[in-house]
């Protein structure tokens, strides 16, 4: 207890420089620990970063990154002036948030449920099965969605009609696109998403449970007051990381589910860039849009991290 207090005070800026140096020296091995990672990021990420300048250039591969002519903010203007700019932004944000709202809590609930089960076989089976969809390729995934939702013979449509309801036009009705996209994503990734929380749950102190049982706490209460707080740091960090990815909606699956009827709900930034680049490898344009995405993402990440730091003890920095 005493020791931990002293290390807490060590973080105060009041401390003298000399003791900071002492601390660095005492922990020199930690810098060694960082070294491989730092080198890696330096070589494979920072070194190529000069490539970002092509967002402000007209990149011609044979002229190289530095040799291509500058065009200033042309590519950004083209993107911002696009007829679809606001639609794209809205669709990207709404799909992302929708996905986060449904897809984020489910793995946590599932992991907590797994944790309650002691029977080895059942637990193992369900875990392995729910984790399997992660490996299904996007092409097959989209193919299955289209097959299951086909108005003429789709399994799900048949089921809805057998129950006496009128099945909506899932594939072509813009109102259904986001739901279709998000739910199929949830189906594919929830099981996989539990893994990280299961690992975090292994850190739960059994003694806390024993004590709580003696106090007569119900199972549900113990989950709520012991298990959940244990994994809260992980949840917080995952949430922050996810927020930092909010504008990053992959194009592949959307493209495969997109058609001209649901376009108004399904067109996102990445599909737009994909189409623009398709004609003639427009590296510069896609880099510019990517840069725009990154800036927004960074702003969101910093904001969420700031909130997290204010309200909890967990944050990225």
């Amino acid at each position: 207890m005493k020791a931990s207090k002293s290390s807490a005070t060590a973080e105060l800026p009041l401390l003298k420089k000399s003791s900071k140096r002492a601390k660095i020296l005492a922990n020199w091995e930690l810098y060694l620990f960082m070294l491989p990672a730092l080198l890696y990021f330096l070589i494979f990420h920072y070194f190529p970063m000069y490539g970002i300048q092509i967002a402000f250039k007209n990149f011609v591969p044979s002229m190289g990154v530095t040799g291509s002519p500058w065009v200033g903010f042309d590519h950004f203007e083209r993107f911002f002036n696009s007829y679809y700019f606001w639609d794209l932004l809205w669709n990207t944000f709404s799909i992302s948030f929708y996905e986060l709202a449904i897809g984020f809590p489910l793995p946590i609930i599932l992991a907590l449920a797994f944790n309650e089960i002691t029977s080895g076989k059942f637990k193992k089976t369900v875990q392995t099965v729910t984790y399997a969809p992660h490996f299904i390729s996007v092409v097959v995934m989209a193919g299955m969605i289209i097959t299951f939702l086909s108005p003429s013979n789709g399994m799900i449509v048949m089921l809805i009609e057998a129950l006496g309801f009128n099945a909506p036009q899932f594939l072509t009705d813009p109102a259904w696109f986001k739901t279709m996209y998000v739910l199929s994503g949830v189906w594919q990734s929830t099981g996989w998403g539990t893994i990280i929380y299961l690992a975090a749950l292994s850190g739960v102190d059994p003694q806390l449970h024993e004590a709580a049982i003696v106090d007569g706490a119900s199972r549900f209460k113990r989950v709520l007051h012991i298990n959940l707080p244990t994994i809260l740091p992980t949840i917080t960090i995952m949430l922050i990381l996810n927020m930092g990815n909010i504008l990053t909606v992959g194009y592949e699956k959307i493209l495969l589910l997109q058609n001209s009827l649901n376009l108004e709900a399904s067109d996102v930034i990445s599909t737009y860039v994909y189409r623009a680049g398709l004609v003639d490898a427009q590296y510069s344009f896609s880099t510019a849009v990517g840069l725009f995405n990154s800036v927004i993402n960074v702003i969101l990440l910093v904001t969420v991290n700031w909130i997290a730091r204010r309200t909890s003890s967990n944050s990225l920095w």
């Binding site: 696009s82 007829y83 679809y84 376009l263 067109d267 737009y272 189409r275 623009a276 004609v279 003639d280």
Partner: peptide, 11 residues
Amino acid sequence: INSLNSDLSTY
């Protein structure tokens, strides 16, 4: 043409 078409063809 490329930059005009990216919106036009979608529309």
